[in-house]
Structure formats: C-alpha cells, structure tokens
Design a protein around this nucleic acid. Sequence first.
DNA 1: TGAATAGTGTCTATAAGACATTATCGT
DNA 2: ACGATAATGTCTTATAGACACTATTCA
Lengths: 250, 250
Amino acid sequence: MTTEQEFLDSYDPSAYPALAVTVDVVALTIRDGDLHVLLVTRGAPPFAGHRALPGGFVRDEPLAAAAVRELAEETGLHPGEGELARLHLEQLASYGDPERDPRMRVVSVAYLAFAPSLPDPRAGSDAAAAAWVPVDSAGALAFDHAAILAAGLERARAKLEYTPLATAFLGDRFTIGELRAVYTAVWGEELHAGNFHRKVLSVPGFVESTGETTARGGERGGPRARLYRAGDAKLLHPALLRPSREEGVR
Amino acid sequence: MTTEQEFLDSYDPSAYPALAVTVDVVALTIRDGDLHVLLVTRGAPPFAGHRALPGGFVRDEPLAAAAVRELAEETGLHPGEGELARLHLEQLASYGDPERDPRMRVVSVAYLAFAPSLPDPRAGSDAAAAAWVPVDSAGALAFDHAAILAAGLERARAKLEYTPLATAFLGDRFTIGELRAVYTAVWGEELHAGNFHRKVLSVPGFVESTGETTARGGERGGPRARLYRAGDAKLLHPALLRPSREEGVR
DNA sequence: TGAATAGTGTCTATAAGACATTATCGT
DNA sequence: ACGATAATGTCTTATAGACACTATTCA
C-alpha cells in the first residue's frame, strides 16, 4: 500500500497473481467496395468455433512488433514483404477487465491496422482459419472482441476526417475516385463526387499529382482519371468532416 | 507458433517470462493560471531521486480502477470524495518496450486525468513525495515518463478542441472567462476574449446558463460575469480549433 | 477618473454543401 | 447514341477571426 512496499514488490513479481499480456489486431482493408476485418475462427475453448480478432501473447519484443508478427502469421505474409510493407499500424487501446478471459487475467493491447487490399490468408499456414470478413457481417465475437472492433471502427472513421490515412488503404498511385471509395466504405455514406474532388485537391499535402492518368476510363464509361500519390501532410487542414455527425453529439 | 500451440500456452502462463502490468497517471490540473501535472519523487532505485508519474502495479481490479486508486493514494484524497468525484479519467496509451524498466518487463497502461484545482497532497500520507508541478518545469522524468507526459499533454490539447472537457478543470459553476483561462493554460496561447465568448455560447450543449452572476466583478475591475454550468454535449460541433495548427501538419 | 473586464456588433475571408455544366470515355 | 464518370464552375450559407464598441465594476 505504501510507496516503499511497491518498490519491494517490484523486485518480486511472483508476489502478484499470474498475469498475461496479449496483443489483438483490428486489421481493416477494403474489398469490392466494402470494409473488411481480418478474423480467425477459434479451434479450442473458450469460445471454440467463435470468431475472434487475430492476436497472441507478447514475447520479448516491443508491443507493436508483436502486433505485426501476429498479423503476418495470420495472413501468411511476411512483415515488410509486399503489401504488408505499406501497412499503417497504430495502437488502439488496452483492455484489462479481470473477467474478460475466463482462464486467467489477461491484459490485451489492441492495435489498429489499415492495409491495402491483401490476398486471402494462405491455406495450409497458421492462417487456415483466418479470413477477411465484411465488418457488417462480423456478428458475435469471442471475449470482448466485439467492443474492440467497434472501437477500432470508430477510430478509423475519425482518423479519416483529420489525417490522410485513407491513402493507406490504396496502392502507391490512385485516383480521386478510388480515394472517395475508401471514404464511402469506411463511413458507410455516399459523398458528393464533385465536392469531394475539389476538397481533396484543396487540402495542402493530402495528395500530389503524378502527371499520369489511368490507361483507360471506368468500366462503365467516363474519361481517364488523373493519378495521384499520397502527399507529405500528417494532418488534414482543413479536415474532411463526416456529413452525419449530429447524432451522438449529446 | 501455431494457433494450437498458443491455446496450450495460454493454459500455462509460467511458460512465459515474468511480466508485470502497471498503471501510470498523467493527472492535470490548473493552478494560478498554469497547467500542472502531479509528480512523485522516487525514493528508491532505479531513478531514485528522479521525478516520475504516479502509478503502481495492477491488482485484482479493472485497469481504470487501478488508476483511480493510485491517484487517490498519491493525493491523499479518497475516490469519490470531494473534488476527486468530479474527476475525468480516460485511457491514454500503453507502453511496453522491453527496455523501459531496467528491472524486468513492465507493460504500463497510462491514464489521463483532468481535475479541478486540488489541494496539495497531504503531508504524512503516501503522498509525502507528491506535488503539483507546472508542466513546463517537469524536466527529466524517470523511465519513459517524459514521453507519456508529452502524449498526455497532446491528447489534452486535442480533446479541448472537440469535446467540452475543459469544464472538467472547473467547479460546477464557472464564468466564460474562467473557461477561457483553461484553454489558454492548456494550449499556451491567448485567445480573443470576445470571439471566444460568442463561440462558446454558439456551440449547442457546451454550457448552459444558471441565471446567476458572480457576486462581484474582477479583481481589477469589470462587470459581474454570468455563471454557467457544463451542458449535455459530449462533442463540440462545431469544434473550437487551436489557432496555431499549421505547424506540425507536415 | 482610469483601467480592466463582460458582452455584443460588424465586417471580411474562408469553407461547406447544393447543384449545374462540360468533357471524355466505354459499350 | 447513350450512359457513366472526371473535373470544374457557381451560388448560398455557415463559420472563423479581426476589430470596434458599450456597459459595468474595482481601485
């Protein structure tokens, strides 16, 4: 209870009940115009057969490295390889309710990842039970993972407002229309094409022109679109605010 | 390495190296117009004699409860008692670099607290070494606490933009001038009094009038000010943006 | 009386959003 | 030819910020 006692305790961790630290990852990507999250199907109790966020125990490594490692294992890709090299990863929050895991006290550090469209997890790897699932079809998840997913989605929606991270869902070159498709998928709202176009170009450092255009127009017609790459801005100023933000204000 | 192996491991935590979880609290308050943070002076190695954020090991309790408990111990106040009852507490981030504590692997969950002006920590309590320190005078801190404090300050500055949490630094009734003093203390920038006044009143749900005024004018003259209390808004719309946000955008 | 503060009014520049328009491409 | 999309133009309204101004109170 006293400060000195704490110092003593700190040298004797076995005086405390066993406690584990895990990382769980909310990995988001966009497929076919819809926002998807990477989920695994648990093969053992508790919650056997339920879907869960990919994650696992932290080893002798930084927390973010554990998140990247788990993600790489579940997708069958290697960190720094191919599309995983362009991954955006940020810490989301930590969850440590004593009852959140029925086996023992587990504190989980959740991470949020934005990925360009990735292939399906490789069959035969650790990731046999992993799949990209539309976020609207995630359903019930193991442990408190539904709450973690909800927090990740809300964070992602907010981040698109004031950061250029929407580009993290795209390749290194993209059209304004593709960028708008990211916003509509994450926010779940249609955006006015013309206003969005002008606004994106008016924010300093959001995108920069490559001088190129697409090789051909859209599948259903339309002119060739100019290609852009991500700019050097870390924050959008002014921000792109969501249309419907009156709800939830009170 | 495989998913099944993880399930087995999860039942045998002793297979993993000893690991501790702590909470550290960035507790902010405003005294004499300046932003202060609660710091303790360490009495034992490592970092003996250095200042540090208040914190300690997590017990059989939720993480937020551990943060409140540590804060109560250091200030000598009891949770839910007096000013501590009005405390705003939110999770900040977790810090788990393997080298951040020289003794052992410690993962710390940092919390951020906004408090109305609190008394000095009680002499004779656990808090004998605790004190409110102006954030500009914090200097070097033990472990990675300087980085945690910096993250807390940035979070606080950002939160004041789009939430009504500035009122968490004030009593249950306050003037617009007192609210403006919170903003100038946290942001470190002067705000135009007239524009601030009109803007605060124009944001729905930020403050609501009590119909009362202060008993007397300012110490150096001026009329009596109307008294307000916090409104029911959870988000400010439109937000109060910091004047200088061009820097750090790139 | 003078200085400081509360609160309001006015004006300008910027930004958001609704809507229209033109050009280019695929089918 | 037709429909779809890219990109730009126009107009209205809301907001931010600079500045001026009046009223009230304390020293």
